[in-house]
């Protein structure tokens, strides 16, 4: 009966994942490998194609202008693109929040602890969720409508060119583990339920929830990847890399705030990054 409960939990989290995350790994890999029929992404590889693609970027998500009624969009391709990324990130935070709420027991935790878990977990989750969208040559953006090349991102001015390169390095390695969407759903829940986040009031119930999800993940990986040795351990090791990447990412954003005088940081992302590490 215990194993049956763990299987049911895995199914439940997979269903929630499919419900809240619009671009699954299965869809992204189909697009990246050209097996998605008519769904061929627009490729951005230089400034000219970026200009053409900007229309698509802003159709796929709420645009910068909608967030800043009354203020003009800033100059510079980098900043404009950065604002699009922020809008998508803020929307993704909402998706992750809905997913977190679907983890059994999560909404019964102290509300302040729910906030803390999201504050510290959400950027790790967002970075992890970029992996299925990436390959060594570039990344899907805008819900899979656009493929932006890694070389183009590297050609942007500093520090914008430094923002995604570590995520590519991580993703290429992480993708070799070949997790599917059902594995990812459990792994995301494990990350969210980290009992060692600073400032948590009531650690015990969080650790208990995480323990159950960990058991479910371990069992699920054994069944789903019978030939992949030590996969559970390898997956958990990635949590250390994710934490480091978040620290580096937040540092880059702080640097941007100092160097880009006109920079606007989305209020939700500001809230998350303030006093994070």
């Amino acid at each position: 009966p215990e194993a049956a409960d763990l299987r049911a939990l895995a199914r439940h989290l997979y269903e929630a994942y499919l419900k809240y995350f619009p671009l699954t790994k299965a869809k992204a890999r189909a697009i990246l490998s050209g097996k998605s029929g008519d769904n061929v992404p627009f490729v951005i590889h230089d400034i000219k194609s970026l200009m053409e693609g900007e229309q698509l970027i802003n159709n796929g998500q709420t645009s910068f202008q909608e967030h800043n009624i009354g203020s003009d969009p800033p100059d510079g391709v980098e900043l404009r693109f950065f604002y699009s990324c922020q809008s998508r990130s803020a929307e993704a935070v909402r998706e992750v929040t809905e997913f977190a709420k679907s983890i059994p027991g999560f909404v019964n935790l102290d509300l302040n602890d729910q906030v803390t878990l999201l504050k510290y977990g959400v950027i790790e989750v967002l970075i992890l969720m970029m992996s299925p969208l990436m390959n060594k040559d570039g990344t899907l953006i805008s819900y899979g409508q656009i493929f932006m090349t890694r070389e183009f991102l590297k050609s942007l001015r500093k520090p914008f060119c430094q923002m995604l390169e570590p995520k590519f390095d991580f993703s290429v390695k992480f993708n070799t583990l070949e997790l599917d969407d059902s594995d990812m759903a459990l792994f995301l829940a494990v990350i969210i339920l980290s009992g060692d986040r600073p400032g948590l009031l009531n650690v015990k119930p969080i650790e208990q929830l995480q323990e159950t999800v960990l058991h479910s993940l371990e069992l699920h990986l054994k069944i789903n990847h019978p030939d992949s040795l030590q996969l559970f351990a390898k997956v958990l090791q990635k949590m250390t890399d994710l934490r480091q990447m978040v620290t580096d990412h937040v540092q880059l954003i702080q640097l941007l705030k100092k160097t880009e005088v006109d920079m606007f940081l989305h209020p939700l992302l500001q809230e998350i990054m303030k006093d994070l590490y």
């Binding site: 998500q61 709420t62 909608e66 803020a90 929307e91 935070v93 909402r94 929040t97 809905e98 709420k101 909404v107 509300l111 302040n112 729910q114 906030v115 999201l118 504050k119 209020p267 939700l268 809230e271 998350i272 303030k274």
Partner: peptide
């Protein structure tokens, strides 16, 4: 609580992308 009011709002009710 004031410091994380959008997160609180997201946790307590479903907020649409426009409200974000």
């Amino acid at each position: 609580k004031e410091k994380h009011k959008i997160l609180h709002r997201l946790l307590q009710n479903s907020t649409s992308p426009v409200e974000l």
